[in-house]
């Protein structure tokens, strides 16, 4: 019985130690956790040369290129980062944005304009 009492006191002490530690939780919308360096968030496109490598490489088929526009379907995207890895000119970059909730489903299809004049010597 004395052994059990000792065990109880030790466990009480261990729990009591937490009173003097800083809480591990954050007040989320106001304060956010710092992100790691190669964090893969929503992909961002800039200065695309329309080579089509990303379309071939994307495992879920989330990327679509039309005449002057570049579509990324976030409903399909699995944030693997293949497109940014294989892009020859590093036009696609994974940003650190991860809060992708929207009120309309169609807003999840991101559209980027590609300037044709910049596309040279494909």
């Amino acid at each position: 019985m004395l052994k059990n009492i000792l065990k109880l006191l030790i466990s009480l002490l261990n729990v009591g130690k937490h009173l003097f530690k800083r809480p591990v939780t954050l007040e989320y919308p106001e304060k956010k956790n710092s992100k790691p360096e190669n964090f893969r968030g929503v992909p961002v496109v800039n200065k695309c040369i329309k080579c089509g490598t990303c379309i071939n490489v994307c495992p879920s088929g989330a990327i679509q290129i039309e005449e002057n526009q570049f579509f990324i379907n976030l409903k399909k995207c699995i944030f693997c980062g293949n497109c940014s890895y294989y892009c020859p000119v590093k036009a696609i970059k994974m940003s650190d944005k991860y809060e992708t909730a929207v009120s309309d489903k169609n807003e999840l299809i991101l559209t980027y304009d590609i300037k044709v004049s910049e596309v040279k010597d494909v």
Binding site: V15, G16, K21, R22, P23
Partner: peptide, 11 residues
Amino acid sequence: LGWFTQRKGPN
């Protein structure tokens, strides 16, 4: 109870 489990409790 929050502080004992390293949370913030109601805030």
